[in-house]
């Protein structure tokens, strides 16, 4: 069930560079559905379903944005830097959690007229000295936003829909795939949030004929959306045309549209005037790979209340199954 899969994947720890726990959780889930499962030196989880025909590389990134402990001051407050694209202006005053389960809060110094910045944030773990703070969270450990979810009918809000919702779609796709027409490689990538790094090396070793990234995309249709964005939550899977990382190769983009039409799936086109996905990394690998992205529309991306539609996610699975089994030549 999509919702159960989603909730199982929202909670395991996995900031960029420390994806061990989420990789293990996903590996357990997909083991019965893969012919081969391996991990590379950066931690990418690679699942293979053998088949004749072309090699299709799907990817969804496992890593989360978060914080890394740099030191603690003598009063016991941990100083941090960001792992991936944290917006310092809205990062303060949240619950955070470390890999070992220890919880704390991230707070922000008073700004007055200053601009927000990562160096104004700090994590409070209830310690009263540097030694105690570093015992609880040593230098180099990472923290992520603590999990809390709201269910609003078909919509669900929680931290890290980016990109655990896509991981859920990819897990469900592996379960849904039938007799193989092509070889399917499902890569749960690492370090997307710091520069699509996992996908770069995974694409190099997988050498696919087609690349398909599954990621969330910021949705429009919310008050004062600036710049205006076309994708809307609840209006179906979004076929990405362009973002700042890549322009989807026409054969892949058109193939996704053809799959949607064949299966009678309501879909949308989306264009983002910023951002990027793992598709860019696959596209420039070696001699070039036709690639694209199927996006899950998501409100409030990179906030603790990322909101998606479960039905949009289910439709993504249906669309990708038809694409892989009936459209790709």
């Amino acid at each position: 069930m999509m919702k159960d899969t989603l909730f199982s994947l929202l909670t395991p720890f996995g900031p960029s560079g420390q994806e061990g726990p989420i990789a293990a959780a996903i590996a357990e889930m997909i083991r019965p559905h893969a012919d081969e499962l391996r991990t590379d030196a950066m931690g990418n989880l690679i699942a293979v379903r053998h088949g004749p025909g072309k090699r299709i590389m799907f990817c969804a990134h496992m890593d989360q944005i978060g914080y890394i402990v740099l030191d603690a001051d003598k009063e016991g407050f941990l100083r941090v830097s960001n792992v991936g694209g944290v917006n310092p202006a809205s990062a303060g005053f949240r619950h955070v959690v470390f890999q070992n389960g220890v919880t704390g809060v991230i707070a922000c110094e008073p700004l007055a007229d200053d601009k927000p910045g990562i160096e104004k944030l700090y994590i409070d773990v209830g310690a009263d000295s540097r030694e105690k703070a570093l015992e609880i969270a040593p230098i180099g450990t990472m923290a992520v936003i603590a999990h809390q979810a709201s269910q609003m009918g078909d919509h669900v809000a929680a931290p890290y829909m980016d990109d655990r919702a896509a991981c859920a779609v990819l897990v469900e796709l592996l379960k849904a795939l039938g007799k193989p027409k092509h070889e399917i490689i499902a890569v749960f990538t690492v370090q997307e949030e710091v520069g699509v790094r996992g996908a770069t090396t995974a694409a190099y070793s997988v050498q696919p004929d087609f690349g398909l990234a599954i990621d969330v995309t910021p949705a429009g249709g919310v008050p004062k959306c600036d710049p205006p964005l076309p994708a809307k939550v609840g209006k179906g899977p979004a076929v990405k045309v362009k973002d700042s990382g890549s322009i989807s190769t026409p054969v892949v983009r058109d193939g996704l549209v053809a799959a949607a039409k064949r299966a009678g799936i309501a879909f949308q086109y989306e264009v983002l005037p910023y951002g990027g996905t793992d598709a860019r990394a696959i596209m420039v690998s070696r001699g070039g790979v036709p690639s694209g992205t199927l996006s899950i529309p998501c409100r409030y991306v990179h906030s603790p209340v990322e909101t998606v539609s479960v039905r949009d996610m289910e439709e993504c699975v249906r669309l990708l199954k038809v694409w892989a089994e009936e459209i790709v030549e």
Binding site: G220, P227, P228, L229, P230, V241, K242, I247, V271, P273
Partner: peptide
């Protein structure tokens, strides 16, 4: 340029390529 959002009056907003 590339079309992004269509307004209710038919105007087309765009982004750059």
């Amino acid at each position: 340029l590339m079309a992004t959002v269509m307004e209710e009056d038919g105007a087309i907003r765009f982004t750059r390529v």
